[in-house]
Design a protein around this nucleic acid. Structure first.
Length: 176
DNA sequence: CGAATTTGACCCGCGC
DNA sequence: GCGCGGGTCAAATTCG
């Protein structure tokens, strides 16, 4: 199995315009509303190695969400821990795809069983809490897994035709 | 000089 | 309870 399905979180404009027909849906669910396109609960299933993290079955669920830092300000807003994540497996030479949004890196960690570190990004748009993490596979370093968490509440600041741009950045991996 | 990145420390959940 | 792995913070540093 080598055909990693890939979807681009392009969402610059509502018109999903010209992208692979089979991927469109994923996009819609991604940016539109979580009509539960491909949410996945990343870690709750015991063992999930990065190598098989395709788009998982729709599942909303638990993850942690409160990170009350030290101090005395126990400000954990909500106790409910739920998070929906969307995973995209792509073949690309660049780690971070330019999806039209502005991301600020806030962390990087070494992942077990993976010689490549995982990078954590947050959308810089004010009020937008979308996060994403990017990780390259050890087994096949040409594969990059991008996991999105949350949904953008604002339009991309890039022109709509950046799909083409993305295509240029990566080797498309068409399932057919 | 402000914004973004780097990087070690810290926190938390989970398995043993 | 402890150690490990993963996620985030924040000070320091680099970059534009």
């Amino acid at each position: 199995m080598e055909n990693c399905q890939m979807f681009f979180p392009i969402s610059s404009s509502p018109s999903e315009a010209n992208m692979a027909p089979n991927s469109c849906q994923a996009f819609n669910s991604f940016h539109g509303h979580s009509s539960n396109g491909l949410l996945l609960d990343w870690k709750s299933s015991s063992s999930r190695s990065a190598e098989n993290c395709f788009i998982q079955k729709p599942e909303i669920e638990k993850t942690d969400n409160q990170m009350m830092k030290s101090s005395s300000v126990g400000k954990q807003k909500e106790k409910k821990k739920r998070k929906q994540r969307y995973a995209f497996e792509t073949r690309s030479q660049v780690d971070v795809l330019d999806d039209g949004y502005r991301w600020r890196k806030y962390g990087q960690k070494a992942v077990k069983d993976n010689k490549f570190p995982r990078s954590y990004y947050r959308c810089t748009h004010q009020g937008c809490n979308v996060k994403k993490q990017v990780q390259r596979l050890t087994k096949d370093e040409s594969v990059v897994v991008t996991t999105y968490e949350g949904m953008h509440t604002h339009p991309s600041h890039k022109p709509t035709d950046n799909f083409e741009h993305i295509l240029n950045q990566m080797h498309i991996y068409k399932p057919f």
